[in-house]
Structures are given as structure tokens and as C-alpha cells.
Write a protein that binds this DNA or RNA. Sequence first.
DNA 1: ACATATCTTGTACTTTAGTACAAGAGGGCT
DNA 2: AGCCCTCTTGTACTAAAGTACAAGATATGT
Lengths: 183, 183
Amino acid sequence: MTGRRPQRPRDPEARRAALAAAVVEVVAEVGIGRTTHRAVAARAGLPLGTTTYYFPTLDDLVATGLAHATEALRAELDAWSARLGTATDPAATLAGLVVGYLADRRRARVEYELYVAAARNPALRPLAETWLHGLRDLLIPHTGATAARDVAALVDGAVLQALATDTKLNRADLAAAIRRLTP
Amino acid sequence: MTGRRPQRPRDPEARRAALAAAVVEVVAEVGIGRTTHRAVAARAGLPLGTTTYYFPTLDDLVATGLAHATEALRAELDAWSARLGTATDPAATLAGLVVGYLADRRRARVEYELYVAAARNPALRPLAETWLHGLRDLLIPHTGATAARDVAALVDGAVLQALATDTKLNRADLAAAIRRLTP
DNA sequence: ACATATCTTGTACTTTAGTACAAGAGGGCT
DNA sequence: AGCCCTCTTGTACTAAAGTACAAGATATGT
């Protein structure tokens, strides 16, 4: 009785974007390893065939989604850089930005999924380095190279712990630790 | 022509241990999400049926493997505690222990797989906390509570970055950062 | 208008994987 | 010896998932 679904207007870029966004959500929910064509398609509200039409393989699909998330993060890092440039108390400002970043746990989980996956899969390392080096590099002008490296490690560790134990991060405590690492 | 394989001697505990050890290796190679009954059985050199005979479900099998790894880590943490107790330069000693820990990347990757999985799956949190809290708690007598928390975060972040970017960790640099966080 | 390349959609095929289970093989107990 | 409980092993069943592809729709250029 019911025929096929009325066809959507053609829009390749919108399809790619919708699939990439859907990948991010699926990864946040089930992890990279359990992300499937079908779950992504369902999440995007698109037919299964769309995933293979636009991406030759599942790895390409997932990689595109992760690149999508990383790009958004990169933009956020630029905003952080601007904020820190005008901050009177850089340590407290950075701590606040980190706490804000962690407020969206779904997104943060995707990032850390990416890092752990990059540990196993060299192809993902450039993406992982976007955040790791991005945070470090944006701190260098404020703190110098060594302190930037240490603060970046501290922040990554604090976020990872907060995610793994499902606890909040205390802004004042984090700011105090950042200050200790900063000359 | 060839009949069935000559049957192994009965040894339930050896089977469980072999399966748990195989889980750890498979997780190190493909991640938690892509760990399968068949891969674990092959790795352990046991027939597929063994996995389901001893573990009702795949989740149980994986959880047992992760618990196995965590238990080994717990033992190592006790050794760390002993070493730090007699150390003349605790920061350098801890940094050395961390670098040594990271020398076995396979094992370290399993731990971080676990943390990221725990972020999504509350059932895994107790296991994740073994390391997270274990490291922190063993530092408390040496540094006090706040510094212990911060040093633990720093170490976790440094290890994660080293894993994700496949780089080494510099012991002297890490020791210097630890010292800054320690009163 | 018509031809053609590109996109949309549904479905089918094949592999992989979770789980169940039957058929023995030991080993201990009476 | 005979019985029974437990373990070992192989295989089978079913569901999930990667991938291919056919059929139709739409736009674009001539």
C-alpha cells in the first residue's frame, strides 16, 4: 500500500554533514568499535544505502565523523585562545573553559574515544593531535613551552578522570593546580 | 581422517585464566568494542565453546579480562608504594615508575581502553577507579590530598598523550612537573 | 524535449559473530 | 564395575552487519 518514501531534494553536502554528525552521536553512545552503518543511518534519519554511497567503507565514515568533531573542537580552541589573550587571571580562565568543555560529556567522550583509538590506529593520530597539540600550542605564548606541555597533560588527565568516574571538575582546584605548573 | 583434538586435562581455573589473559591481548589489539568470542578463543588456543561454557555472555568475558588486568595493575601499585616509601627523590622515582609502566604499551592501552569504556558504562567504573584512585591514594602520604589528586591527573594525562601520539615520555621533564605540583 | 550523469532509496547477498547444545571424555564415589 | 557430575570439544542456529547493486528520480546541458 505505502509506496516508497518521497525522495529528499538532492543535497550531497547536507548528506555528508548529516552522516558525520550522526557518527559523532553514535560514537558518543556506543564507542567507535561498536559504531555501525545502520546505527549511523538510523541516527541521521537516512536510508542505509546513503552511508555506502558517500563513504566507501565504514572506516571512512567513522573517520569523517571524527574529523567533523575535531574541526568543531579546533574552532573552540581558537575561541579559548582569544579568551586567554584578554584574561586577567589566565589560570582561572582556562580552568573555567575546561569545566565548560566538560559540561557536554557526550562530546568530551568522543574526543577521548578518539585518543584511545589513535593509540592503536596510526591513521587517527593526526586527528588526535589536533586537540593535544592545539591546547599545548595555544598555551605556549602565555606560559612557555614546558609549562604548556605540563598544563596540557594536567588538563587531559583531569578531564579523563572526570569522565571515567563520572564526577565533576572543581574549577578552583583546577586553577590552583594550573598555577603551580605555571612559572 | 583426523578425529577430534585429543582432549586437554580438566582444569577450570587454567581455562578461566587463559581466557582472561587472552581477552587482555585482544583488547590491546582491537579495542573493547571489537573484542569477540572467537578472537579470544583463538588467542587462548581454546575452542569457541569454552568461552560460553565459562562465561554466560560476552560482557562477562570481557569484564573478567579487564578485572584480570586491573588486578595485575593493583599489585604493581603496591610495588610502587614500597618504592616510594624508601625513595630519596620521590618525584624522580615516580617519574621513573611511570616511564617503566609505559614501556609496555600494550598493557597501558588496555587500561585507557577501560577508562574510556567506563565513561560510557557505569558497570566498569569500579575497575577504572582501581588505578585512578589507587595512584592517588598511594601518593597521599607523600604529598597530601590535593597534590596527590593533581599529580595523578598529570600522570594520567601524560600517559594518555604519549599513547595517543606514540611518543616517549621524558623522565626528567615529568619529574620536574611532579615537583611543581608537590608542596 | 531528450539524453545523461548524479543522487536517492530499498533490498539482497555474504560474512561475521553471539549463543545454544549435543556428543563424548574423564574422574570420583559407592 | 557402574553411575553421575563436570568439563571438553565441535557444530549448528540465528541475528547483526558490511557491502553491492538495481530501479527510479532529478537536475543539467544541448
